[in-house]
Design a protein around this nucleic acid. Sequence first.
DNA 1: AAATGTCGTTCCAGATAATGGAACTTCACG
DNA 2: CGTGAAGTTCCATTATCTGGAACGACATTT
Lengths: 269, 269
Amino acid sequence: MDLNPEGVKANGRGDRETGTLGKLVALLDRVALADGPMRFTDILSLSDQPRGTLHRQLSHLVEEGLLEVDRDGRYLIGLRLLTLASRSWARNEFRAVAEPHLQRLHDVTCETVHLGVLHDAEVIYLDKVEGRQSVRMYSQIGNASPAYCTGVGKAALSALDDAELAIRIAALEFRPYTQQTLRNAGELLSDISEIRQRGYAFDIEEHESGICCVAAPIRSDDGHMLAGVSVTGPAYRVTPQSLQAWAPLVVAAADSIMMDMRNRMGPKR
Amino acid sequence: MDLNPEGVKANGRGDRETGTLGKLVALLDRVALADGPMRFTDILSLSDQPRGTLHRQLSHLVEEGLLEVDRDGRYLIGLRLLTLASRSWARNEFRAVAEPHLQRLHDVTCETVHLGVLHDAEVIYLDKVEGRQSVRMYSQIGNASPAYCTGVGKAALSALDDAELAIRIAALEFRPYTQQTLRNAGELLSDISEIRQRGYAFDIEEHESGICCVAAPIRSDDGHMLAGVSVTGPAYRVTPQSLQAWAPLVVAAADSIMMDMRNRMGPKR
DNA sequence: AAATGTCGTTCCAGATAATGGAACTTCACG
DNA sequence: CGTGAAGTTCCATTATCTGGAACGACATTT
């Protein structure tokens, strides 16, 4: 516990699980990540805590509404989180500023438009505009994906300076989601160098087979927040040519969002 | 700390703020509830904790990504919550089962359809289907409103037995959102008795001026979860007659959702 | 029906982390 | 430069969390 070289783990976030809160949030994460309600024993086998401790921790989370217990005594994520999150989303200034631009981009391209922000080495999708598909409508919002295999993520990474970039890449663990997924830091760096030259990024089935996109970076004026916009579509409908054609539009949208943010926040600092 | 008659507070939830987690969640709530980023001093004046303590608590929340600090050092709700909540939402079985029914109800009525679940004395909106309005699209999802002044809430309350109903109503604090808002337990009980007879509830501008709806209750087969569906529209377009006409459709949708849930979960218990 | 095993819950002395008063930085302003 | 307000760090004290073990509730087997 003196000099811990553990650093940052592979997901790009430092899951120190330190402190009471850290442990509880990690637990919350674990239950959230499961794809269904979990029985006490399931959670017990995943976490390396004694039964008594785990039980009390779960009870506390349930008491606060962060977890819920179904009629079979299984644990699942509680709705209280949805309430908290909806407020975080509704009051997010950046999202609000970007919204009309995303809408416009969608009107022109008729494909799905995403807005995502970079968090360590992950992209969190903040907003999405898509057509009348009715199903899975909200699915993407709030979703966190590795930055290295998404258009928005790579675009955002490209806006970092080399030092910062190196730090974040060092924390990565490259997992091959598809045939096209970048496989190591070298491939990522070379792609990022291209992205910097062009000003926009492509994702050709790197994260999900059959899905490709073109994305542009958004820098906040103080350089502290990085984000990206993308236009995404199915490979059978979206050709490299159309992606290429959309690129300037995406870049323009990203720039407009930057300008609007600057004007909104400008007077300060 | 022996016999505490504090019971349940006016919001219908028991905000005991007990234990480390309880205090932190209360803090989180406080920041979430504010309508903008909060400075350290603002939070300090609201919470009755010493500066040192508060500062450490905030730091922990920031470390876990539950809060964020903007460039001016002000605190706001973090995006990590969005990530956690999105999973809870995407994997919510009830929501998934209800979705097609909501869609169908929208197709017929061409007005906004809501799905909400009852939590203590609040309704949390789980899903929403609406037309091409593009703006404020997701705003309602996750939102928590008092049960006594929303259609979905009153419908859900009406499905409780008298004993349970009395308990929840006792915890209420009636706040007049509009001219039409029910003003006390008596008015609510009499409305609920009507709702029980008809099988559906109305909300005629009781929560928000110019907004009215018709709603029907959904009971889970084990009677443990209560929810409701509603069709909502602006008063200038939606007449009492149209609400009346939609009522059987809303009730039918609610019943279908109940049936689907029963079939899905049936084999057990 | 008794025996066995699994699963979940409760308890309490000991380890650990939270507490809060005070001292210490910044920083803005006159 | 002095003054005050806002924010941060420190550390002995104290409240809280920890985890082994014992207990209760079922289900399954013999």
